[in-house]
């Protein structure tokens, strides 16, 4: 038996998320007595690949093929399915991100394997195979039993701590058989260069309608940049065009799980909380002491965000100079 973890790379580089996945897979592997095989779709340099060995991968497989240059969901799913079959993997781990959400269900359909999407921890039991996952948009956890011999798990971001677990891994090249040419044709790529992605950020500073005007985002941006974080907003703010749509968090926006989420002038509607409830810490700044956001926050300031944010900026600057 083996455990296959699919670690996406971004132009040949891994992210913390990739290492989290391997770390998680090695946690599952320990419970199930299986070795961890990490698969990435190349090309990736050897030094970069060896980073996966630090977290418990004992074999690192790089699939390369001309048909894999662009991301075609069905083709990528076939590569992962093929390798899982070849290696007799009984657990396949992927990220619950854009690509993971794309390929995981295809693999599940091809293998008629049970899928648990957005798991947040190790299985609670192996026989029967039971695992907890997010449900009701963060308002509940579901304990899911997977009844098939092959199980597919997608791991919620930032839900598993990195644990170093060095292995003497071997790197293998793998040339998959690709029968159909990719169905998706890419016409144009619009990249957002150099910006910290909201979903990757460990600290997020977010503003709601209580920020009053888009001009006041200077405070949000300054605090985010001082803390090395990203900026976000509530839905009405992006609907108004105050901020780009990509920044909206919540049920119908991005679901994020940073270590720290600072919500300024956000009331804390359930649909907003659905996107941020997995944050490790929530700080709320709101002029209304009864705002529901305080029910989910660990630290709160009742006050005018337009005064409190500049004071926080000054306090961070002062703390940095100490």
């Amino acid at each position: 038996m083996s455990l296959l973890v699919y670690t996406e790379n971004w132009n040949g580089k891994f992210k913390k998320l990739s290492l989290e996945l391997v770390s998680y897979a090695s946690g599952v592997g320990e419970i199930m007595n299986s070795d961890v095989i990490a698969l990435t779709i190349g090309p990736v340099e050897e030094d970069e690949l060896m980073r996966l060995a630090e977290y418990g991968a004992s074999r690192i497989i790089v699939a390369e093929h001309d048909a894999l240059k662009e991301y075609d969901t069905l083709t990528y799913a076939s590569v992962i399915t093929q390798l899982a079959e070849k290696e007799g993997s009984d657990v396949i781990v992927l990220a619950n991100n854009n690509q993971g959400k794309g390929v995981a269900p295809v693999i599940a359909a091809r293998l008629a394997a049970g899928l648990a999407a957005g798991v947040t921890g190790l299985p609670v039991s192996v026989d029967p195979f039971r695992i907890d996952k997010r449900a009701y948009s963060g308002n509940a956890m579901a304990r899911l039993e997977i009844k098939t011999a092959v199980r597919i798990l997608t791991l919620a971001q930032n839900s598993y701590d990195l644990k170093s677990n060095r292995r003497d891994a071997v790197i293998e090249k793998y040339q998959p058989v690709i029968e159909n040419s990719p169905a998706i044709k890419i016409e144009d790529v619009q990249r957002q260069e150099g910006k910290l992605l909201l979903t990757d950020a460990e600290i997020v500073v977010s503003g709601g309608r209580g920020m009053k005007s888009p001009d006041n985002w200077v405070h949000i941006e300054e605090l985010a940049s001082l803390l090395g974080g990203a900026t976000a907003c509530s839905r009405p703010v992006s609907d108004e065009g105050w901020r780009p749509h990509g920044e909206h968090t919540g049920q119908t926006g991005k679901v994020i799980a940073p270590n720290l989420y600072i919500a300024a002038g956000i009331s804390g509607a359930t649909q907003h909380i659905a996107g941020v409830s997995s944050s490790k810490y929530i700080v709320a700044i709101n002029s209304d002491k009864d705002a529901p956001i305080f029910e989910v926050a660990q630290y709160g300031i009742v006050g005018d965000a337009l005064k409190v944010l500049p004071a926080l900026v000054a306090a961070v600057k002062a703390a940095k100079n100490d």
Binding site: A113, A135, A140, M141, A142, R143, L144, A297
Partner: peptide
């Protein structure tokens, strides 16, 4: 292929 065994409401923070 899967079945929810039980739900839990997360403990309030």
């Amino acid at each position: 292929l899967t079945e929810v065994i039980e739900y839990e409401i997360p403990a309030p923070r």
